[in-house]
Design a protein around this nucleic acid. Sequence first.
DNA 1: ATCGAATGCGCAAACGAGTGTGCAATCGTT
DNA 2: AACGATTGCACACTCGTTTGCGCATTCGAT
Lengths: 338, 338
Amino acid sequence: MKSHQVTIKDIARILGISASTVSRALKDHPDISVSTKEQVNKVATELNYRPNPIALSLRSRRSNVIGVIIPEIVHYFFSSVISGIEKVASEHGYSVIVSQSGENFDKEVALCDTFLNSIIDGLLISVSKETTDYSHLNLFREEEIPVVFFDRMIEEFACDRVIINDFDGAYKATEHLIIEGRRRIVHFAGPQTRLIGRNRKDGYLQALRNNGVVVDETLIIPCDDFDKAIVETTKLIENGIKFDAIFTANDFTAAGVLKVLKMRGIYVPRDVSVVGFGNDYISKMTDPALTSVQQPGFEMGQKAMEMLINRIKNPKSNDFKTDILPTLLVKRDSSRGK
Amino acid sequence: MKSHQVTIKDIARILGISASTVSRALKDHPDISVSTKEQVNKVATELNYRPNPIALSLRSRRSNVIGVIIPEIVHYFFSSVISGIEKVASEHGYSVIVSQSGENFDKEVALCDTFLNSIIDGLLISVSKETTDYSHLNLFREEEIPVVFFDRMIEEFACDRVIINDFDGAYKATEHLIIEGRRRIVHFAGPQTRLIGRNRKDGYLQALRNNGVVVDETLIIPCDDFDKAIVETTKLIENGIKFDAIFTANDFTAAGVLKVLKMRGIYVPRDVSVVGFGNDYISKMTDPALTSVQQPGFEMGQKAMEMLINRIKNPKSNDFKTDILPTLLVKRDSSRGK
DNA sequence: ATCGAATGCGCAAACGAGTGTGCAATCGTT
DNA sequence: AACGATTGCACACTCGTTTGCGCATTCGAT
């Protein structure tokens, strides 16, 4: 910072008045005469006076900074959530500190500790795949710092949440495959420790059942990134498992699937349809372009930030809400016709 | 924040000593007796005392927060830069506020203004494609807030910088294409308002000249995103321009090129080789996998943050440095053989 | 016994801004 | 002329922490 920042005292000294008068003048307080106000404002703009936000924070006990903990920025979905958060935050005068857990529980705990030793007015968090314990979040409750979950939450921890209708998204994706004539639909599933992973799997199962397709548990495989998809898809083929579609828990996984199928001479969508989840920008860039469940990431970020601001302004109430956002199936070439 | 945060005064009151003694005790000051220190530390841990960072900032005039302005988080390169920044920042006790300009000059200026009314100790910025004016950055100089450019800079604004050896990366990419037997190499170029765009183009040109390939200016086309690539590649084909390779300024553009070539029945790499720039994760996911120039984003973030910390600690000196990081050509299927 | 030094702690100011209270000076009224 | 009411401002404290200085008390040495 500047060696000598312009303060209210500087203005006071120049005009030969007290700092409190300057303060009130700048805030257009009725006690101050018009001429004094004019003088103060003149000097203030001349010196390019900016109120020191730290001093304000010290008094108000509000930093106007919120913390965000996210698994990985690299995902299109999460970066669009961040964009939504930032939009609402800046509209309300908040700054945003974003940290990545890297899907690592210990890192997540460490980040929480950093935030607790920091200055945040609230926390937005999407927990890592590993996270099941939530004692690190209890500390925020003790310090009365509001927490809002987005996308991935801990069910036992009561607070506001914004989630995607994962069940419905998976249902629509699976039903789409069935309508297109697929019956042996593989599901590359996310971790079942997370509700999000269970909901996607349940949506898949429900769609099968509602449409009279026999559920084959051997077609449900834990697999949720590009590299694992390379391995698991290869295994499927080499083990001679019959399948005519693959529905993955995210788009990176689907990209891996497409890659292996192509290498093996299995045509998409003629032989096998593929549907992803997330509508990442890669879904336009794969070959063929990937059918995927769009998640409203930007809206999720906005909604989460709005809920957090409300909670900051009204910390006492205990009526926690859960917002469930709708998904949209974006159909592209990887699942069209036979 | 908590209705009553535990302060040094609470500890003092409990022990019947002064706040200053508590402060010194916690800092292991030699003036304080061992027994007092023990008592203070005991009470401090019992009450879960955490020093108020805002009060510390007010005194020290250091917030330990740095601001980052980035065009778009969505790019793999930029999000890896952020990861590098965060790593070094957290190691040194800094928090990071990231904001996106969205490649929009006005937004960039607005963000700078927000940061100036905020609390940051330093600024890391990669300017938008539109930015040519730099008066918004002069304000930081006036406030004595250090600025470090990464990747995209303003040449006229003297400060520390970390950039990629774009010239060399483009040179290697182009030379690789020539070695593979290509002669009619199209360049989809980034904005020539940015040094980064000019350097990539110059590297391309130099490689052509050094290898005795005739430069054809009509093969150099401004085009730097997925959608534009769809349009421009289509134009190339429909206008009957002969080409056997395309070198693009980034990977999204290359993905668009691949898409159109595939649709038009032009085989990659048999008929046309394609090389991108950035080594985004999409380069593994396109079909064929994309040869691309790897930029050390994570290292860039680390380096930029280190330079900024040095500058914060030593604001006086005027010996600004420019760090140039090397690139690496990652060869994949889109440019192998004929 | 007296002096000097060392020990251990408190006072008060400072960082920058906001605000309740009090107190002059001026105003208008009778 | 005397009164109360209004205007316009300053004082002092607040937020939580650090730190220069001063002041007792104790200790050891002479």
